[in-house]
């Protein structure tokens, strides 16, 4: 065992941000951000060891298979990739995961879910987008349902959610719909995030050392 000197230089990954800054902007405490850094390092070095989460690494973590494509995983990855440069940096990872924290206000979760389902970034969830998502889900689940039945499900969903009757769901209608169907938000909360410091303890020896 070597000894740790007070002058040890800590090398962080590109895109690293200070835990105190991230904690001040998110639902996480400083300790939780440090624990998330441990998880981030693991995910971001699983295939390409550059300290950034690439799409294949995200797929590997979600599905145990780096080649498994999935419409919804792609959407999540794109929303986490705030700078839209094809990788998820540490700050993006923490800010995005914060949406899923149990203490984050519901309004943020509702808005995130809307962006997730607005596949073409039009500001609305349209019938075609909803159908594309239903078909993707059915395909992923190896379920075979007739096109007629899929259309019935879409019609029924729009009957409930599209209160203005213009064949698209706007953010206001979405908010109302989610309030009537709160189970739609269950994916937007990860209880794990409350226990993250136990799952990924960061040994705070690596606190920044002042000169």
């Amino acid at each position: 065992m070597g000894c740790i000197t007070s002058k040890q230089i800590i090398k962080h990954t590109p895109g690293y941000e200070e835990p105190t800054v991230l904690a001040s902007e998110t639902s996480f405490s400083v300790n939780e951000v440090e624990a998330l850094y441990e998880l981030f390092k693991k995910l971001s070095n699983s295939i390409i060891k550059d300290g950034l989460i690439h799409k294949e690494e995200f797929q590997l973590a979600l599905f145990r298979n780096s080649n498994r494509r999935n419409l919804f995983a792609d959407r999540i990855f794109d929303l986490f990739d705030i700078k839209r440069n094809g990788v998820i940096e540490f700050g993006e990872f923490v800010r995005s995961l914060s949406i899923f924290h149990p203490n984050t206000p519901e309004a943020e979760k509702i808005a995130f879910a809307f962006r997730l389902y607005d596949l073409r970034h039009t500001g609305y969830i349209e019938r075609e987008e909803l159908k594309e998502m239903v078909l993707a889900l059915l395909n992923e689940s190896d379920l075979f349902i007739s096109d007629e039945f899929v259309e019935m499900i879409i019609d029924e969903t729009f009957r409930q959610a599209d209160s203005k009757g213009d064949d698209k769901i706007d953010p206001e209608e979405w908010e109302e719909f989610v309030k009537q169907n709160p189970s739609l938000l269950k994916n937007m909360t990860l209880p794990y995030l409350k226990d993250i410091t136990m799952a990924f303890p960061s040994f705070v020896l690596n606190s920044e050392v002042d000169d």
Binding site: L62, S141, Y192
Partner: peptide
């Protein structure tokens, strides 16, 4: 009269939306 399951309920079952697996060791 029972209503059809809404599409978003179906979609929310996708594994691609289950980020909990990120935390599994």
């Amino acid at each position: 009269k029972p209503s059809l399951m809404n599409a978003f309920e179906l979609i929310s079952t996708s594994q691609g939306l289950n980020l909990g697996t990120l935390f599994e060791k």
